[in-house]
Design a binder for these strands. Structure first.
Lengths: 337, 337
DNA sequence: AATATTAACGCAATCGGTTGCGTAATAAGT
DNA sequence: ACTTATTACGCAACCGATTGCGTTAATATT
């Protein structure tokens, strides 16, 4: 029971060649049904397990999909991953997951490691500070499917899966304005990342549409870490004209803002109305409940998964350089009423 | 640039054997420094990349660690994973992550897939309904390190990494009692899982210590899904003696309970004091802020990572059948004051 | 100087499948 | 009955490293 049995063992006991065993096991058309049956039943009898290492070597593919995300421990990202994993698993692929920890250097290392490991495809959500993209060159050159999700960058022949962040930003902002806010503040993540810069565009457009002039004071770029909440409070307290509407780049940070603002005796939504982003579970649990934009993370993951799989199975790019845009949705709760 | 070059290409252009190239690249002692230098510089010059597939096949190991968790999209689990990933990555291992979705069947499939993929070790946090453990037999038989984290089970020669759930449960409960609660309710997850059953033991012990008799009405087993909050409310409303202290198996569910109880006009902590578990980020953001037990997920992951790596490097089990217990901590916030 | 060591490397088997090509045996065509 | 297709399988060359063992050449021993 210790020694793993191989196709050669099977071949010998059955009196056929190893090639025949291999083809039988893979249901190759040029093998008679009778032989296939013999091989398969004998394989079961002896408890044969195919050795993936050998398969990988000879096929030069690993049945594995690499994923690089900024952080694993964010509810949004782990939800996306849950979606990806489900699809990949169903399709018989394994997922190798690594995190860049928002550092381009680590992202590069991960990209290289995964490349060397021979992943068949790579899914990436970019780190905060990624500015160049040479680390993906190998993938592109060797035609390994490369798909960006959420935090994307346009590279030739790479798909992207996103939502319409500009429109979402527009809708969130217009909602604040409709609720009577006159002096808005957009608390953004790193503007190098599409998700935040696009939302800023939408923010500006909404202001323009409603005859509000955009000023630097209407924007605060932040790393969205818990310790940066104080910057937000400072910005708000020091502003000439009192801010009455806050558009925050994610729900968790928005929740922290709410907490601190309440501590500073601001009334939410009385003094300041707040809208977040993502529709994280937390948005329903804070007081007041948080208006937000629903960003379907799980669906995003599922779509990303399906996209890679189809790339991988289709062989040819079914949708060369395509971009999938998911539907978002404005969710109105107490914090803007 | 297209054709990957192999040790044979190197061997040919250098006029040495492939074996020498291989040994040079691996810094084998029986090769002269001069030759090593020649090989290495030529390798760099030609852009040689070692083919992991071939290495895996000949070494029969993959440099990969498998992980099975119930769900990816939980803040606790993804935090644990973040810790594991960091360590594994630093040690040069890849992580293949899969989720059982709380189903034993899927857990079995995952265990099999990962085994077939040739992972060098397996980390597992058990699904809700896992009752038998045959799917791990292959690992044990072939001496592949198997480590359980958080939701554990005692199997021969398998490490477990946990906290003292019983003591934590005791402390949480005693804290409620100290705050004046007389009629407690423990809202538990599936009691087949050690984490929940241990906490129940602690719960009972604390009650006993303070001369409170434990009754079925003091326990509610739940799947802790959002839709089960109504059961909690029903249980509380229908109870003969009004419940004044709630010990909830995790913070997220506790947050949901708080929300619904407030909606039902219960005052927290006035009418009912509540303590959660895990110290999820949400516990600080709800109103009132939630008392809880700090469960250091990241450290747990780090420790799990270090443990596997040492198993893997040490070859021999350094700590056969050991069990690592992390320190937890009672965190008192508004919900129990 | 003759022999025993040691250092440095080559040979070839091995890991376990996959697959193009060739061929014997059987079935079909005329 | 003879030629032509088909079917069913065997052969052996890969895939790209690793590694035990043997061999040559350089160094040490007495």
């Amino acid at each position: 029971m210790d020694k793993r049995i191989t196709i050669y063992d099977l071949a010998k006991t059955l009196g056929v060649s190893a090639g025949t065993v291999s083809r039988s096991l893979n249901d190759h058309p040029s093998i008679s049904q009778k032989t296939k049956d013999r091989v398969i039943s004998k394989a079961n009898e002896l408890g044969y397990k195919t050795n993936k290492f050998a398969v990988n070597l000879s096929k030069q593919k690993s049945n594995t999909i690499g994923v690089i995300v900024p952080k694993l421990n964010s509810i949004f990202m782990s939800t996306v991953l849950a979606g990806i994993e489900k699809i990949a698993n169903e399709a018989g692929y394994n997922l190798i997951i690594s995190q860049s920890l928002e550092s381009m250097e680590k992202e590069k290392l991960n990209a290289k490691t995964l490349y060397d490991s021979g992943v068949d495809a790579l899914l990436v959500s970019l780190a905060y500070d990624t500015t160049d993209f040479d680390h993906f060159a190998n993938y592109i050159r060797n035609k390994i499917p490369l798909i960006f999700i959420d935090r994307v960058h346009n590279l030739p022949n790479c798909s992207t899966i996103i939502i319409d962040n500009k429109l979402a930003g527009f809708e969130a902002t217009e909602h604040l304005i409709t609720q009577g806010c006159k002096n808005l503040l957009y608390i953004s993540g790193n503007l190098k990342r599409n998700v935040y810069s696009e939302r800023l565009k939408g923010f500006k457009e909404a202001m323009a549409k409603h005859n509000l002039k955009f000023d630097k004071a209407n924007l605060l770029e932040s790393d969205l870490g818990p310790s940066s909440v104080k910057d937000v409070i400072a910005h708000i307290k020091n502003n000439n004209i009192p801010i009455d509407g806050l558009f925050v780049a994610n729900d968790t940070f928005a929740a922290h803002c709410i907490k601190e603002l309440k501590k500073e005796n601001y009334k939410i939504p009385g003094d300041i109305k707040i809208i977040g982003f993502n529709n994280d579970p937390i948005s329903e649990l804070v007081t007041p409940t948080l208006s937000t934009i629903n960003y379907p993370g799980y669906e995003l993951g599922v779509l990303a998964g399906q996209s890679v799989i189809s790339h991988l199975n289709g062989g040819i790019d079914l949708h060369p350089a395509n971009s999938i845009t998911l539907r978002h949705k404005l969710i109105i709760r107490e914090s803007t009423l």
